[in-house]
Design a protein around this nucleic acid. Structure first.
Length: 232
DNA sequence: AATCACTGCAACCGCGCTCCT
DNA sequence: TAGGAGCGCGGTTGCAGTGAT
């Protein structure tokens, strides 16, 4: 297919370009057998002529169980707008708050719908959201200032920046430590932000439902409910 | 019906971070 | 502590599909 599709022939014998169903099957069998991770060993353990990087990308973006296919809902669109206004191009971070969606998908969606087009309505909406989120961030800075001895700049960093993988921040506003020891954004903080923003946005009639409607199935519903329930 | 332009999306690339030796 | 390997992330590329002319 490489030649047919016009993709370059890979160096070192690796295949590149679109994946075939047979390759997908091989990769799924490999993951079922060995689990996720250890992507560099895929080539050594299977007949797949793909490098580890390619395998990981294919798995994460297409084969992983629980992935949502199809168009993003208006709710998801709203979440992306909000989180992008807050964090910028931290696609993987944003993706954590959209179960079943990948960073690549969100990135593509943003580029397609908001960066390129620049439709007046969408720009208006985005500016509106950004203005309101700026207001919320200011409020949170004031609240945090009242509760800590941090300098204003430090507080702004905590409130506005995406979570960084530094141990010091694992107990701060934006991070928590997962059971595997890795830092994760704290969904509670985002829930509060989004819930408050939700109130504001709802006033405008821009959105029409709960952000993650419990009536809607999604693969990580238990985790999401567990994460968000203390905040609402 | 043919051609062109635009859009959406899958996949690749390079860089930086983390972990292990 | 330094260096290498592996992994994850963000940016970019290129193909396929679709609508407009």
């Amino acid at each position: 297919m490489d030649g047919m599709m016009g993709w370059r022939v890979a160096e070192e014998g690796w295949r590149k370009g679109p994946w075939t169903p047979a390759e997908d099957k091989l990769l799924m069998e490999y993951v079922a057998l060995h689990g996720e991770g250890s992507w560099s060993s895929v080539a050594g353990c299977s007949v797949l002529k793909r490098n580890g990087k390619s395998c990981r990308l294919r798995w994460v973006n297409y084969l992983r169980p629980g992935l949502k296919k199809g168009q993003l809902s208006p709710q998801e669109e709203g979440i992306i707008i909000e989180l992008h206004a807050l964090w910028g191009n931290k696609w993987s971070t944003i993706a954590r708050y959209l179960p079943g969606r990948t960073d690549n998908e969100i990135k593509n969606y943003w580029r397609t719908h908001f960066k390129k087009k620049g439709k007046p309505l969408q720009n208006d909406k985005k500016q509106k959201y950004e203005a309101k989120f700026s207001y919320i961030q200011d409020q949170r800075v004031q609240e945090t200032m009242n509760n800590t001895t941090s300098s204003e700049s430090e507080v702004y960093d905590k409130v506005t920046k995406p979570p960084q993988a530094t141990p010091q921040e694992t107990t701060d506003l934006t991070c928590r430590v997962a059971t595997d020891g890795k830092q994760q954004p704290n969904p509670c903080v985002m829930a509060q932000d989004i819930a408050r923003c939700w109130d504001i946005v709802s006033e405008d009639g821009l959105w029409s439902g709960f952000m993650w409607n419990p009536d809607h199935d999604h693969p990580n519903q238990d985790v999401m409910e567990q994460s968000f329930s203390p905040c609402f």
